[in-house]
């Protein structure tokens, strides 16, 4: 079995295992929704070398697009999701096109500034977005013969989409396109010298990333029945980026780990202590200092340790931590 198929099997196992280990279908759905968003972020960070602080833009626009479609038109669910995907892709094309005019830290600052721009846009046009309150009472219509009202039914729908999206992203990553992105990440100057229009490739990567993130945003809005202002806020961009980095930027499955860890741990901590972000902040520092390959790197070291000699059973207790689904 090659690496890509192994990772797909792992992703499928996560989708199957979540209902077995978790009591809340809503939380389980949230894990997979953010796994999509983080994997899309990773296509930029890990494959193209672009650290985007603007993923919340596409997530938020996806939420609004789906919400507006379902509230104001009689279009079916599929159309709402498709429109959200398109909204994410279009916005990402624009943001990417402008942001990659500058490189390095300027690029990062631009993406952050654009995320502020879209936040104020959503905040200013209250008639459309509901402003501070968000778009309320978004319905969750059936898809064909399947009703999605019940939380685990919706989870099943999300899980199917998650696996489709994951497989599609894997396909993108291993295509000539994805391999060119890796080359651009490695040595942009050489990529241009051998004939690749680097900017066009970066913008396309943005469009793909934005499309998936828009879809994730739409699924999230349907999950909670609201398209809140917080979906397009700075903190959404920040969270998606954090999930991606905590998971590890080396492969797409790492982002699933990162999202799972972040969503579950934040749910757990926030129910214990409302100021849990303090601990998260500390965790980020720890990750940067000691865990630069993220959870995936930790998992790799663990597997290696287990293979190299079973003489140290002391390591066994570390195990559940790395998967982060001990609930």
């Amino acid at each position: 079995m090659n690496r890509a198929s192994l990772h797909f099997v792992l992703a499928a196992l996560v989708a199957i295992a979540l209902p077995l280990f978790m009591r809340s279908g809503t939380l389980a759905s949230e894990v997979l929704i953010f796994a999509m968003a983080a994997a899309a972020c990773n296509l930029l960070l890990g494959y193209t070398g672009l650290l985007s602080f603007g993923q919340g833009i596409f997530f938020g626009l996806g939420s609004y697009a789906a919400g507006l479609t379902l509230l104001h038109t009689s279009l079916p669910l599929g159309a709402a999701l498709a429109l959200a995907t398109i909204a994410g892709a279009v916005a990402a094309t624009g943001v990417g096109w402008l942001s990659i005019r500058r490189q390095g830290v300027y690029f990062v600052m631009l993406t952050l500034a654009f995320s502020q721009f879209f936040y104020f846009l959503a905040y200013t046009f209250k008639d459309v977005t509901g402003g501070d309150n968000g778009l309320l009472n978004i319905p969750r219509p059936a898809i064909g013969p399947f009703a999605l009202g019940e939380s685990w039914a919706y989870y099943a729908f999300v899980a199917v989409l998650f696996l489709l999206v994951f497989a599609a992203l894997q396909r993108v990553a291993s295509s000539t396109f994805g391999r060119t992105l890796l080359a651009i990440r490695d040595n942009e100057e050489r990529a241009r010298a051998i004939g690749f229009p680097v900017r066009l490739f970066k913008i396309t990567a943005f469009a793909v990333s934005g499309a998936v993130t828009g879809l994730a945003g739409a699924l999230h809005a349907l999950l909670i029945g609201v398209a809140p202002l917080s979906s397009i806020e700075y903190h959404m961009s920040e969270s998606i980026l954090i999930m991606t980095i905590i998971g590890g930027s080396g492969n797409l499955f790492a982002s699933v780990l990162g999202a799972g860890f972040y969503v579950i741990v934040s749910d757990l901590l926030s129910s214990i202590w409302p100021r849990w972000l303090l601990l998260l902040g500390g965790l980020l520092v720890v990750v940067a200092l000691f865990m630069q390959k993220g959870l995936w790197g930790l998992l790799e070291r663990l597997v290696e340790a287990l293979q190299n000699g079973r003489k140290s059973p002391v390591e066994a207790p570390v195990r559940p931590e790395s998967e982060g689904r001990s609930i």
């Binding site: 396909r171 993108v172 291993s174 295509s175 396109f177 690749f196 066009l200 490739f201 396309t204 793909v208």
Partner: peptide, 8 residues
């Protein structure tokens, strides 16, 4: 190489 679905 710009088509994201095309394999090598």
């Amino acid at each position: 190489a710009l088509a994201p679905w095309r394999g090598v």
